[in-house]
Amino acid sequence: MNKYIVHTGEKKHLVISHVSDETAQWQIVQEADSVLTVHLFCLEKDADASHDVVLDIEQAGEHAETYIYGLGILSGKQHISVHTRVRHSVPNGKSNQLLKFAVKDEAKGAFLGELIVAPHAQHTEAQQTNRNILLSPAATMQTQPQLEIYADDVKCSHGASTGQIDESALFYMQQRGIAPDVARQLLLAAFFHDVLTTLGEPAVEERLQRRIAEALSAPSANSAL
């Protein structure tokens, strides 16, 4: 478990670009007026990778802001779970979470999003969004938003959905001569676009686009006999 404090007035950016035993678990406390932005990228190549990512963040001082942006492409027999816990323990905090996953092959993904607003944490503004696309019939994604809101004067919203690639868009693109794998890549790049733009750095964005393309075209785990 990595433990960390974002001190009063500090701005910190945590980028987890590779998930490993060393980078998976975080317990972070934010003091007043601090801003924490976390970017999480689950784009592992190892077909048997299995990780439990935990981001446990507590706003202990007022006027703190927490942003969690994440994306993942799970393939092969990977098993990745992402657990975010954002605790608003004091008033006037803000948090926003946007996490998107594409799951292929026989991979299993899970998202548990805990959002806890303490009884006296009035004027909290918190959002949580989780969107997922399943790319094969054997792929699974479990999503579980868990909001515990004990204060009454807050703005909190959440949304979660799991779907498939839009077949009509796929056919439309094929009718224009675009191969299905290229069409899927364009559609998934579009799916991840809003997460990538939160990086605010075109060069990093471009590098990640390439990693996304690689992860999508990576040969599947040896699931056939």
Binding site: G177, L186, A190
Partner: peptide, 25 residues
């Protein structure tokens, strides 16, 4: 070529990238 009766909306895929992929394919 088919001009679709109901052309499909593809959010996030720019016309430019879409057409470049089609023309180059």
């Amino acid at each position: 070529f088919l001009s679709f009766q109901y052309p499909v909306e593809i959010p996030g895929v720019s016309m430019t990238n879409f057409m470049r992929a089609a023309v180059n394919a």
